[in-house]
Nucleic acid binder design. Sequence first.
DNA 1: TAATTAAACGAACGTACGTTTGAATATATA
DNA 2: TATATATTCAAACGTACGTTCGTTTAATTA
Lengths: 199, 199
Amino acid sequence: MARTKGSIGKDTQAAIWQTAKKLIVAHGFEAMTLRQLAREVGLQPASIYRYINSKDELLQSLMLEHMGQLLTACQKAVPQHATASQKLKAFVAFHIRYHIERRADVILANLELRSMQGEARAQVVTKRRTYEEQLIAILEHGRNEGAFAIEELEVAAYAILAMLTGVCFWYNAEGRLSIEQIIAEHQALVMQGVARTAL
Amino acid sequence: MARTKGSIGKDTQAAIWQTAKKLIVAHGFEAMTLRQLAREVGLQPASIYRYINSKDELLQSLMLEHMGQLLTACQKAVPQHATASQKLKAFVAFHIRYHIERRADVILANLELRSMQGEARAQVVTKRRTYEEQLIAILEHGRNEGAFAIEELEVAAYAILAMLTGVCFWYNAEGRLSIEQIIAEHQALVMQGVARTAL
DNA sequence: TAATTAAACGAACGTACGTTTGAATATATA
DNA sequence: TATATATTCAAACGTACGTTCGTTTAATTA
């Protein structure tokens, strides 16, 4: 056989990417094999190479694509002109929702940096830092306003991010709680956590 | 060659375990190869099999060992008879310190459950649940006391655990902050986060 | 010192890996 | 309909994998 009936490059491309994400999340990037990927998409291993140049480049594409979309979505979701409290609430809601809705991308991005090297890795690290700085800026704003009491902005930012990102590791769509309830619970923890107490 | 001068089983066993942890954290369990492990320990691949029965069993040993030690250490570190606030503060301090000091074990335990199956997997899941319940019990105690205001105990517990565990992914021993400072910062976030506000 | 046990070796097994090459078939264009 | 392009295939490459086997040497015991 050769070209199969109804085969369209765009669709195959999409299937490869989606299946790759699934397999990487399940097994890790290094452990995922292109043969397994080909089998699940319904191709021969060689055919994958019409869509990627190498296994490493596949990971790079997935990573950079995700980080770019995350940054774009974040800037849309968090208001530029608002109080620090409003911004922080919006950030928490955005982060949780985005991480639940794009679970595979997020888990991949958080676990597979170890399999990247060189220029592409540096780019991902930079983009991740840019994202972290969004939150750091909000926390700093709140501290300057006098609304937040935070000793170490960076530690607090890492702590909050870890807490929020954790959701996509245990969230169950069939579970008792809605996304909104989970967001509300986390907003309460975060807002109280950073608030300046009256004492 | 055969048996090498100065070779002692206990030492080799320890070297294998320690190196295995390092490699699994660096590459993931499925991607770590026994040949690589043997090379780093200074053995031939076949020699590894004097100490393990299979690659899968190696992971099981590392996992179960770690979970057992975590549970034991936790029960020692958190006082049984104290206020919920005291217990929670102690739990936060314990968790962060333990996770920084045994970084490799912890990262391994958190990322490689996906490579386990069957009975051993079930045992790890049960032990992890037992650990989570330590924290849930503390939070419930605080809510009953009237000291904490928490809607969903389980969500709050997951959120706190994710936040604390996150430390071992970014902590840098050569960094500016001491472990004590990091603990203090997290204690502040957590204690304020769950506290019942005066309003 | 002689016999026994502990520890590691070298070689090989069947299988799977990422990747390259050139040919075959389906769709799009002229 | 004839030509060009897009899409997939089958086969093979060198390499590495987890694991088994029987052998060899070092340390321990009698």
